[in-house]
Write a protein that binds this DNA or RNA. Structure first.
Length: 886
RNA sequence: GCCCGGGUGGCGAAAUUGGUAGACGCACGGGACUUAAAAUCCCGGGCCCCUUAAAGGCGUGCCGGUUCGAUUCCGGCCCUGGGCACCA
């Protein structure tokens, strides 16, 4: 499709016979990618002399195919990687697969394929997709967590942690589906029923392995202060999750069956101790268990509490209820008899599983006391506030001054707590205590598709860890789960084994590890993915910590906290010398799309994909409605939400790449919103990105001759006004792009690039000597291509080579701003009167303040406004504006 | 309930952090090229008043404050997104 006006040009440029006049993304991208592959462009080597840069995106779960969130995530990572590489860093960007997990088991049940085959098929397909997007990934370091070569080290470190006392076995409460004979995660329990079976979920006590993350709670919290490269909100979320509270552990003595006991409670408000009128314990507390053996009502109540989900949000919504146990404890200060209740609002898993009830100053205790007629006593006074027993007021929980508290009257919070703590500690009835909200991490899953927990149960020796030389415990990969529990439980070849200690017949543990274990250290393994003899080697200390981590905000707590924990454990085992795994963290925003639906007569909702919906616009381009293309009838809009299968509002990246190419997809993703913002999908915007790619190609094609001769002569002097102006704009824009690259605001980098092309296109060749023109545009276009390269590597790579800049753009240095090009003779200043824009003046760049003031005051527009009024003040901001106050 | 974000044209957004609000792009309108369409190129544009232009007024969720000057800083409120949620 050669256009006639290009014909002669094309003939004359016989030395570039392969440059196409039209932009063909599919051909160009395939060609460029195969060259990168042939020269192993992205294989990272440990190199001294260059600063290293480890850029990591969160690895995907191989669910089948990439979704838009992946494309966005990995494009951000790739832009950072390629930019840093041109800046002279030794860059590594690896990729792998978070390959264990529940969806593989569900797919296996649905299709009768083993989870292993399903997973590896998905990996193969998604790897192709990633390659077609042109990401600079070092595939030589690829890993999959379901590979025994990987998960053997989960097992190895598990046994090391067992030795160090960082892993223990304990019976814990789980959601149990009695039909599927399996444990359900909290999010799999819907209205108290199993999501698959619909069966009433039971709470069940089963033995599980726990990792002592609580041992690291103080460091996990304090080290957050040493992570300036993390977003504040992520640090806040982690700090809240770790949940440090300072207070007192207090003991309430009591006698039972002739012996002495104490009831321990934790409180952050010891200053209210004189207002205690009852105590409450959790249903699982030993006192509750004792009482339920002697008291029918307590037994019934404890039973009731044990039914239903363990989900905390559900529990929080429950009405506060309780029963008295008939057991009385002694108030540790004034000796009053205090009754102990079982309360459904007391958590066994926090503090001591028991609370002192201060209904005067705690909202929950207040509601509880009201309901059961328990005495309410005010013991804290806040000046100017009137206490009433009628209803709860916010201020009751505020800190104030002790009243009706005997010797503590008049003390403020700190003084009261100190006095009470010292009084209690002399009687050994209390001490200061720091309580953490964080709980130990239960890693046992009653699942097949995960890392086998390397334990052997022996009747004689108990629970014996699998010795190092017997690792890995390989997961049989040909099982097909049928929905009735973990298939390993029926697999004798796996189950039966000999005890490593005594050699007698023993039984293998069939629980597998939480998949968060797999993802807690994969970023370390990339450094030495081929190491057979050890979990990590020296290369890890070269590459780590990760310089830039990129991933979804949904991992702000669990994954990022577990990874920090594992890194510290591995440090303490001597495997690595870093304290924290991720120097800088970027949490990318979600990809959203509009939801369209219709409700039929029976009330069922049918969702339509946005690609099948046409928007109706009025003359100004305002939305007035939308119809389904298929039948022309209106559909309703359900707002803009995250892309999901259930709402049918997803866009398949594959169709996008096939239609426009990877560069357009990448450019659109970067241009349309800053990385951390949510991104609303918009097909029109994709067209716009594609248009820019075509325009870029066309400019290169149409100016190939000038660029080629400009590159040969390389002029350094630019004398004409046209050239100076254009050059200044290009270098100003380069400065802007550099600034925005550094702060990772890639949408404005893309803007700056578009402006650069606008600037080049506006150069009027008839106003300028050909030699100067050639130098101008060869320099300008060269800057533009390099600025764009990290975002759209294929088109810029192809143009760079076709136009004869050099063989390979990716090894070029980042362009430099020429300060001389930024210089200007005259500057435009804004003239404000009382802060309002009234005029603009042109003055010499070296004009003095007095000269500027004179020009401003002489200006006709200014004269019109000032007239006979008195000029009270004159503010001159150099290079920017003059404000005249009248 | 507690803890974080965010409210700027018809839309996505920008404003180098107190100095020309709306860059860049999308959509829209007008024009050029074309038999026509697509593609491409040029021009226009926050709102109000006005036939138009010039000039002017109003504009960054709302109310108030600091300042020569506020999208930006301070106080109060409204809306919205997210996280945690009976944590004693």
């Amino acid at each position: 499709m050669t256009q006639s006006y290009n014909y002669e040009l094309e003939i004359s440029l016989y030395q570039y016979p392969f440059m196409e006049s039209q932009y063909h993304p599919t051909l160009t991208e395939a060609e460029v990618q195969s060259r990168w592959e042939a020269q192993e462009s992205f294989q990272a080597k440990e190199a001294e002399g260059k600063p290293k840069y480890y850029c990591l995106s969160m690895f995907p779960y191989p669910s089948g195919k990439l979704h838009m969130g992946h494309v966005r995530n990995y494009t951000i990572g790739d832009v950072l990687t390629r930019h840093r590489r041109m800046q002279g860093f030794n860059v590594m960007q690896p990729m792998g697969w978070d390959a264990f997990g529940l969806p593989a088991e569900n797919a296996a049940m649905a299709n009768g394929v083993s989870p292993s085959k399903w997973t590896y098929d998905n990996i193969a397909y998604m790897k192709k997709q990633l390659q077609s997007l042109g990401f600079a990934l070092d595939w030589s370091r690829e890993l999959a967590t379901c590979d025994p070569k990987y998960y053997r080290w989960n097992q190895w470190l598990f046994t090391k942690m067992l030795e160090k006392g960082l892993v223990y076995r304990k019976t814990g409460t789980v959601n149990w589906d009695p039909v599927d004979q399996t444990v359900l995660a909290n999010e799999q329990v819907i209205d108290g029923k199993g999501w698959r079976t619909g069966a009433e979920v039971e709470k069940r006590e089963i033995p599980m392995y726990y990792m002592k993350i609580t041992d690291y709670a103080p460091e996990l919290l304090s080290a957050l202060d040493e992570l300036p490269g993390w977003p504040d909100r992520v640090k806040t979320m982690q700090a809240n999750w770790i949940g440090r509270s300072e207070g007192l552990n207090i003991s309430f003595p009591y006698a039972l069956d002739g012996s002495d006991h104490t009831l321990k409670v934790f409180t952050t408000r010891a200053d209210t101790i004189m207002g205690v009128t009852f105590c409450a314990v959790a249903a699982e507390h030993p006192i509750a268990e004792y009482a339920s053996r002697h008291n029918r009502d307590v037994a019934d109540f404890v039973d009731e509490c044990q039914r239903g989900s363990t989900m905390e949000a559900d529990l929080a919504a429950l009405e506060k209820k309780g029963v008295p146990t008939g057991i009385y404890v002694t108030h540790p200060i004034d000796g009053r008899e205090i009754e102990v209740w079982v309360g459904n609002y007391v958590l066994m898993t926090y503090g001591e599983g028991a609370v002192m009830g201060v209904p005067g100053h705690d909202e929950r205790d207040f509601l509880f006391a009201k309901k059961y007629g328990i005495e309410i006593q005010q013991v804290i006074d806040v000046p100017g506030k009137e206490y009433s027993l009628e209803s709860w007021q916010e201020w009751y929980a505020e800190k104030g001054v002790c009243v009706s508290s005997g010797k503590y009257d008049g003390l403020d919070f700190t003084a009261a707590v100190d006095a009470i703590a010292s009084d209690l500690s002399t009687q050994s009835l209390g001490n200061k205590h720091t309580q953490w909200r964080l709980r130990d991490w239960g890693i046992s899953r009653q699942r097949y598709w995960g890392t086998p927990i390397p334990i052997i149960h022996c009747d004689v020796c108990g629970d014996v860890p699998v010795p190092e030389e017997d690792l890995p415990v390989v997961l049989p990969d040909d099982c097909i789960p049928d929905g009735s529990g973990n298939p390993l439980n029926k697999l004798d070849s796996f189950l039966n084994c000999a005890c490593p200690k005594c050699g007698k017949d023993a039984r293998r543990e069939t629980d597998t590890m939480d998949t968060f274990v797999d993802s807690s250290w994969y970023f370390l393994r990339y450094a030495c993915a081929d190491s057979q003899s050890s979990m990590l080697d020296d290369r890890a200390n070269y590459w780590l910590p990760v310089d830039q981590y990129i991933g979804g905000i949904e991992h702000a707590i669990l994954h990022l906290l577990y990874s920090r924990f594992w890194t510290k454990v591995m440090r303490d085992v001597g495997l690595i010398s870093i304290d924290e795994p991720f120097d800088n963290l970027l949490t990318q925003g979600m990809v959203l799309n509009e939801i369209f639906f219709r409700k039929n007569e029976s009330g069922r909702i049918e969702y339509f994909n946005p690609q099948d919906v046409e928007l109706l616009l009025d003359d100004d381009g305002k939305r007035v409605g939308q119809t389904l293309v298929a039948d022309g009838q209106p559909v309703e809009t359900g707002g803009i939400r995250t892309m999901s299968k259930s709402k049918n509002n997803g866009v398949d990246p594959q169709s996008l790449i096939e239609k426009y190419g990877a560069d357009t997809a990448r450019f659109f993703m970067m241009f349309t919103a800053p990385p951390e913002d949510t991104l609303a999908w918009n097909d029109d915007g994709v067209e716009g990105a594609y248009r820019f790619m075509k325009r870029l190609w066309r400019y290169g094609f149409e100016h190939q001759k000038e660029i080629a001769s400009g590159l040969q002569t390389k002029p350094t002097e630019f004398v004409s006004k046209v050239a100076k102006t254009s050059r200044r704009e290009t270098h100003v824009l380069l400065q802007q792009a550099n600034f925005d690259y550094d702060r990772k605001q890639f949408n404005t980098v893309a803007s700056a690039a578009m402006k650069m092309l606008n600037t080049l296109e506006q150069v009027d060749g008839s106003q300028i000597e050909p030699s100067e023109m050639n130098g101008l545009i060869s320099e300008g276009f060269g800057i533009l291509l390099r600025v764009l390269f990290p975002i759209v590597p294929h088109i810029t790579d192809a143009l760079w080579r076709e136009l004869g800049y050099s063989a390979d753009i990716q090894f070029m240095e980042w362009p430099q701003v020429d300060d001389k090009a930024l210089e200007r003779d005259e500057v435009e200043l804004v003239v404000q009167i009382n802060g309002k824009l009234r005029s603009k003046i042109l003055v010499s760049a070296v004009a003095t303040k007095e000269e500027i003031e004179k020009v401003a005051l002489d200006d006709q527009h200014v004269q019109n406004h000032v007239q006979d009024k008195v000029v009270k003040k004159l503010i001159v901001v150099p290079g920017r504006l003059i404000n005249i106050v009248i």
